[in-house]
Write a protein that binds this DNA or RNA. Structure first.
Length: 824
RNA sequence: GCCGGAGUGGUGGAAUUGGUAGACACGCGAGAUUUAGGUUCUCGUGCUCGCAAGGGCGUGCAGGUUCAAGUCCUGUCUCCGGCACCA
């Protein structure tokens, strides 16, 4: 049945079209940038342009939008920009398939997403839009790379790297998840390659230390994950002399106090050290073992259940504390990349060492008696506290900290070791053998080696390759583009080659939030003066999937920019909000499960406001939303109810609410006060619940109370519209217009709450006798303690509960509660 | 194993500093409107005993502190997320 035009109904589709145009025409969400207001920067993690927006985007963006719109109403000059992280593999794969250029697919998808973002009613400043794949952007990614290079923070190194056989490219450590490629799920293998790295390990301690400032501002789990990833561990380095070798072997241990129990050593088979130590007699066996190790996938290698394997290298080392000669083995349970790639094995007190000792019949010496039995017999290594035995200077001691201190002192005195800190974090491998990324601005000259491209020749633009020319070959497609690759050396002019790899796309996204501050700058990556005005970011919003990669890299970049003197702060994001996922029927949406929910279809059916409001109301922002558990249809009904309040108000614009009904005002101010508090602590779902209460209360006031002409009802309806504008901006604009107010509601101000009105609502007072509630009395909000007590004792239910007993004690918390303790 | 988080009705979830457990919704039930279905509106809805008035129980489990515990303390179980042969 066709609806007649009705001012008591709002038409979601028409409102969307109308207000999108209005906001664009009036630059409603472009910051004034004139210094007249305090500034705030709200940043959403920028999307990757793979197809249209999905439900997950919708949830993330609405959370950021609530904050941005709230701050704008509170009188801040809000920067809320948007752009695209537009380099990356899917574009390249699409180009190969369609015999096209990756840019075709990329920019077409960006257009699609941009239209959807407009429709979704987000308060973005579109004038600052950027794409990381634009030469105007990646020119400065290259420039930043060169600054890192000059500071010695970008370097080339040959080593075994993670290799994805499907994508035919190397991966950063952070991109290998449980032994498989984070992107395509293929099992990752190892390859020896010479690649570019960023020296993020130099910043490990600072990255760790500065997290204390983020405590309470970032989710605990993100901080925990980063700490975990950085993996600081304290211990000692100990040098073991090796007969027949000038250099000692250095190991790292967290338990130097167990040194007397070190009965053998183990080196990583793929470390250079193993190659060098192995005797000729053992070489054949070692080489065979090394080959097997290299072929083992990460998954096999990481399996804890896997039996220990290894090979004796034919050499011995001297235990520096007791002079014992101990054999040196190679085994793949020792990692070449961690510590020094060699360990002292203490089988009695480390389960891995004990498993190895038992497998190869090596001696086990208990040096800490924990009373749990000798590990050599039980097969269970003991790691707890106990009394030192067989430990020379430590014998009899029962304190681990003291034991470590004493042995460290001894090692220092003998000049064979010292306290040391080691990190799990490894340098960031940034080369990728792919086309659709930022070219590394380096030219390899036979004479001068790696030569930076002069800054005035940036950007090094990508050549026009398409289709099959982009197919994975194990080397970068750029290497085959001879016209592009072959260039003269910038120093000597000799025939040289460009570096044919591109950068990890996480480099692009590690600084985009700086670019937003001066997006059209042609002279610099960013204008330090603009950055000083807006940054650091006040609120960052995005998925927890970036808890380590993107956020750690961005923090690293920020510290380097600080060291370069370009900025004066060391953390880029002051507050972080991780919104949850949108799932359906208990599971992540996926094609194979057939449980996908299409955002566009939801919007077509319910309207943008209802979809946004449903997302916000579903639960706390960090929680996952199961779309099967929520009802967008119910939200549509609520929005219509809210709209009808505005349509019903009959008082004049500007009618003084002070002349209106005070009971209505008390409810309005109490609820809006609560909403303000809830916004500060980001409980947006409860904000919506309170708005529903306000709508219900105002409805009642109109229908069965003071009626639509009371100025207090106008105030309630206006406050409702303003509160609603954060979440459901289109219906809020319609309400605002219906109330006779000039557009846009986004240009009004957040209501001032009258604290007296807020506090003055009548309260329900609970009376407890012996801790049990015996009465609920309605009392004035300003009741005195004495009156409250008297009222409580006068209540007949209370008297019945007292049952004639005398009152021993009364605790009064007027106007909420009176607690009576009877005498025994 | 280590680190982080969470356990509240049939469901999603509320509950600043200890002070009415279950706000607000969904769902469900009853009624009104409607030719019917849907919509809309009203009332009810933690469990339990009771015709009722009014009791008893109740925030994973077991203790404790307190006039008062979802909230604090001790122990314990379960689930989710991250890391993990990291020396």
């Amino acid at each position: 049945m066709a609806e007649e035009p009705n001012r008591r109904q709002y038409d979601a589709a028409a409102a969307q079209t109308k207000w999108q145009a209005y906001w664009a025409d009036h630059s409603t969400f472009r910051p004034l940038d004139d210094g007249s207001k305090p500034r705030r920067y709200v940043l959403d993690m920028f999307p990757y342009p793979s197809g249209d927006l999905h439900m997950g985007h919708a949830e993330a963006f609405v959370m950021g939008d609530v904050i941005a719109r709230y701050w704008k109403l509170c009188g801040y000059d809000v920067l809320h920009p948007i752009g695209w992280d537009s380099f990356g593999l899917p574009a390249e794969n699409a180009a190969i398939k369609n015999n096209a250029h990756p840019a075709d697919w990329t920019y077409a998808n960006i257009d699609t997403q941009a239209r959807s973002l407009h429709r979704y009613g987000l308060s973005f400043d579109w004038s600052r839009r950027l794409h990381t794949s634009d030469p105007e952007y990646y020119r400065w990614t290259q420039w930043l790379f060169l600054q890192f290079y000059r500071r010695g923070l970008a370097y080339r190194k040959a080593s075994y790297v993670n290799w994805c056989p499907k994508d035919q490219t190397v991966l950063a450590n952070e991109q290998v998840v449980q032994g498989v490629c984070e992107r395509c799920g293929t099992t990752v293998t190892k390859r020896q390659l010479t690649q570019w790295y960023f020296r993020i390990t130099d910043y490990a301690q600072r990255l760790l230390d500065d997290m204390t400032a983020l405590e309470g501002q970032w989710p605990d789990r993100v901080l925990a994950m980063q700490r975990n990833w950085i993996g600081r561990s304290t211990g000692a380095t100990v040098r073991f002399t090796v007969p027949g070798r000038t250099e000692p072997i250095t190991v790292f241990t967290t338990r130097p106090d167990t040194l007397f129990g070190a009965t053998f050593m183990v080196v990583a088979p793929d470390a250079d050290l193993a190659q060098e130590l192995v005797t000729d007699d053992q070489r054949a066996e070692f080489e065979a073992y090394l080959e097997r190790t290299k072929q083992a996938t990460e998954i096999e290698r990481q399996s804890t259940e896997r039996p220990k394997t290894g090979v004796f290298l034919g050499r011995y080392a001297i235990n520096p504390v007791n002079g014992d000669s101990i054999p040196i083995w190679a085994a793949d349970y020792v990692l070449a990349e961690y510590g020094t790639g060699a360990i002292m094995a203490v089988p009695a007190h480390d389960q891995r060492d004990l498993d190895f000792a038992r497998a190869f019949d090596l001696p086990v010496t208990m040096v800490i008696d924990t009373g749990e039995g000798d590990p050599a017999q039980t097969g269970v290594a003991t790691a707890g506290d106990g009394v030192y035995v067989n430990s020379g200077l430590l014998d009899g001691l029962a304190n681990k900290a003291e034991g470590i201190a004493r042995i460290n002192a001894q090692l220092a005195a003998d000049e064979v070791g010292e306290p040391t800190v080691t990190f799990r974090l490894r340098d960031w491998l940034l080369s990728r053998q792919r086309f659709w990324g930022c070219p590394i601005p380096v030219i390899h000259c036979p004479e001068h080696g790696a030569v930076p491209v002069p800054e005035d020749q940036l950007p090094v633009e990508l050549p026009d390759l398409r289709g099959a020319a982009l197919a994975p070959q194990g080397t970068s497609p750029l290497a085959a583009a001879t016209d592009w690759v072959n260039v003269p050396c910038p120093i000597c002019g000799r025939p040289s080659q460009r570096d044919a790899d591109t950068m990890d796309t996480f480099v692009d996204s590690s600084w985009y939030f700086y670019r937003y501050c001066s997006p059209q700058d042609e002279k610099a990556a960013f204008d330090p003066a603009e950055v000083a005005k807006w940054m650091p970011v006040d609120q960052y919003v995005g998925g927890v999937e970036h808890a380590i990669l993107h956020l750690l890299y961005s923090r690293f970049f920020t510290k380097v920019l600080f060291d370069l003197g370009l900025i004066d702060f060391q953390e880029p994001f002051q507050r972080l909000l991780n919104q949850g996922q949108v799932i359906n029927q208990g599971k992540a949406m996926s094609k194979s499960l057939g449980n996908g929910v299409d955002l566009g279809a939801q919007i077509d059916e319910f309207g943008v406001d209802a979809v946004r409001l449903t997302m916000v109301f579903a639960g706390p922002p960090e929680d996952d939303i199961d779309w099967a558990d929520v009802s967008a249809a119910a939200t549509v009904r609520f929005l219509q109810r809210a709209y009808r309040l505005a349509a019903d108000v009959t008082s004049e614009v500007g009618a003084d609410p002070a002349t209106g009904d005070q009971a209505v005002r008390r409810v309005t101010h109490r609820i809006m006060g609560e909403i303000t508090d809830l916004l500060e602590i980001r409980r947006f779902n409860v904000v919506v619940a309170r708005l529903m209460e306000l709508v219900n209360a105002t409805r009642k006031a109109i229908d069965t109370g003071v009626g639509p002409a009371d100025p207090a009802v106008r105030e309630a309806a206006e406050f409702t519209a303003i509160g609603l504008s954060l979440v459901a901006p289109y219906v809020a604009e319609e309400m605002w217009q219906e109330l006779g107010q000039p557009p846009s509601i986004a240009d009004t101000t957040w209501p001032t709450i009258d604290p007296q009105l807020r506090a003055a609502e009548a309260a329900t007072m609970v009376v407890q006798v012996q801790g049990k509630i015996r009465a609920k009395l309605t009392v004035p909000a300003d009741i005195t303690d004495a009156d409250a007590e008297a009222m409580a004792l006068a209540d007949e239910n209370v008297q019945r509960a007292l049952d004639g007993r005398a009152v021993a004690k009364v605790i009064v918390r007027a106007p909420k509660m009176v607690s009576i303790v009877p005498a025994k």
